[in-house]
Amino acid sequence: MTQLLEALAWIADPTRWSGPGSIPVRLLEHLWYTLLGVGIAALVAIPVGLLVGHTRRGRGPVVALSGAARALPTLGLVTLFGLWLGIGLTAPVLAFVILAIPSLLAGAYSACEAVDPRTVDAARAQGMTEWQILTRVEVPLGLPLLIGGVRLAAVQVVATVMLASYIGNGGLGRFIFLGLNLSDYPQMLGGSILVVALALVIDLALRLVERLTAPRGAART
């Protein structure tokens, strides 16, 4: 337990809370990379996922893709792109985007799919256009699932951003790898605690959003 205390002391050390390479800087870097990765992936994956879910076409390839992507080792992708594309933001962000896409895709198509087909049929029979069915029926009713996909993607990317520190990028993973190189266990542990805290905060925040976006009136099953 002394090591845990040392790690907490490492975090609490005021010199780590200002200047370049300090905890707030690394934290912001971490958040920024996460936002970048999930944001770009969302621009691609959510429209495609909604299209697949709404038309119920192309579900097979999407499911297969999400399944296969789960087998992809994140560390392998990060080091591969790092070696390929060199230092800079392109390599890690490409990896983040690729790893975020399956969860977002799955969230978006299951959001549409979870809506009772009879409700969609009735909406169409009332004279809603396909766009109105998507935006006024499927998305509002499936929003929690859509957000759930964003949550899984975000959590995945937070972990990957940490690994990307290994190939020289910023983010909270820096502390872990620095500690690893120096055999400085308190620093590794301190960095780990920070990453875990960040992941949990993001996870809980998005869970809250899921709750808040659950359509009122729709009986949850």
């Binding site: 937070v158 990453v195 875990v196 992941a199 949990l200 993001i202 996870d203 869970r207």
Partner: peptide, 14 residues
């Protein structure tokens, strides 16, 4: 669900 949100490397370290 929360446990699953924790990245693996920190768990290996802790």
């Amino acid at each position: 669900g929360l446990l699953y949100a924790i990245p693996s490397l920190p768990l290996f370290i802790v």
